[in-house]
Computed example of a mutant assay.
Amino acid sequence: MSKKAVVLLSGGLDSATVLAIARHQGYEAYCLSLDYHQRHRAELDAAQQIVTALGAAMHRTAQLDLAMFGGSALTDASIAVPEMPSEGIPITYVPARNTIMLSLALAWAEVLEAQDIFIGVNALDYSGYPDCRGEYVRAFQDMANLATKSAIEGRTITIHAPLIDMTKAQIVTQGVALGVDYSLTVSCYQADERGRACGVCDSCRLRRQGFVAAGLADPTRYVETANFAE
């Protein structure tokens, strides 16, 4: 009988790859997306297509309006998405986003009696977000096993971050090998309502460089006016 796992699924390249990895490892995948009133909400439609393509057992989308706090270019329409690399942690960082998503995944995992949670964080080709580092994932796992009824009763939780030490090129290479259709995914921080990418934001730049480095064709759908950042 397949083991159950909760898979955090944004609709982007990394989370789609993680879902494919979880399925390849024999997990029955329960996918969780978060509608936090993000600028690029087209990623939520992409998540539904990915779930269908990769055969998840269930997909739910939690609703939580992080735009009420703002503080990020992804949740505050008055803050422009940067189109050039910047120093330090970029303004596209959403305060506590991964902590919120992992907490919701943990709650659902307890209900499902699942002991595994998958998340697509990466600490190599990434934007420098503090909640994408291995030490953060390990700390959350430690907390989860202190804070849950299931862990106290012996069913401990493991947080899987299989992409944590991979380059973007390695990620797309593995995903292609596992049958991920990356044309379905949306990674752009300012994708339009049709899910077309701008080609110049930090996420677009890292994604495109990954396909180039892997020697693979970039299947991303771009707006007609895109001028690619290198």
Rank of each mutant, 00 (worst) to 15 (best):
F118P: 03
I91V: 15
S86P: 00
A177D: 14
A177V: 00
M143W: 12
S127V: 10
E113H: 14
V137Q: 08
M68W: 02
T99F: 08
V186I: 14
C132L: 04
A67R: 13
N122W: 06
A161C: 06
Y129A: 03
T92A: 03
L163M: 06
H160V: 05
Y93A: 00
G134I: 11
A96T: 15
P130R: 02
G195N: 09
T185R: 12
I91E: 02
A77G: 10
A147Q: 11
T158D: 01
T173D: 04
G195F: 09
A123M: 06
P95A: 09
M166L: 14
I100L: 15
L102Q: 01
D192C: 05
F118C: 04
R97E: 13
A169Q: 07
L178P: 04
S78I: 01
A105P: 04
Q115V: 00
A73E: 10
G199D: 11
I119S: 04
C188H: 12
V137H: 03
A109S: 10
A197H: 15
C201K: 06
E153Q: 15
I171P: 01
S203Y: 05
V81W: 11
A80I: 00
S187C: 07
T167F: 02
G199T: 12
Y126D: 09
E153F: 00
R196C: 15
A139V: 02
A161V: 08
E83V: 12
G175R: 08
A105L: 01
A139D: 03
L102W: 07
V180H: 12
A105R: 07
L64N: 02
F69V: 13
K168T: 05
G88K: 09
C201V: 05
V180E: 06
D202A: 14
K168D: 03
P130E: 03
A151E: 12
D181I: 05
A197D: 10
A80S: 12
A144K: 06
M101I: 13
R196W: 04
G134D: 03
A161I: 00
Y136I: 08
P162K: 02
F140T: 11
R97S: 11
T158C: 10
L102E: 03
F140P: 06
A77F: 03
T92P: 01
S72V: 08
L66D: 04
G199R: 11
G128K: 05
A177F: 00
V81C: 03
I159F: 10
D202S: 15
I157Q: 01
N98C: 08
A73M: 11
P95Y: 08
C198S: 08
V200T: 14
S187R: 07
S103D: 11
E87L: 05
Q141Y: 05
G195V: 09
A96E: 09
D181Y: 10
D165L: 08
A67Y: 09
E110L: 07
L74D: 04
A147C: 15
L178E: 05
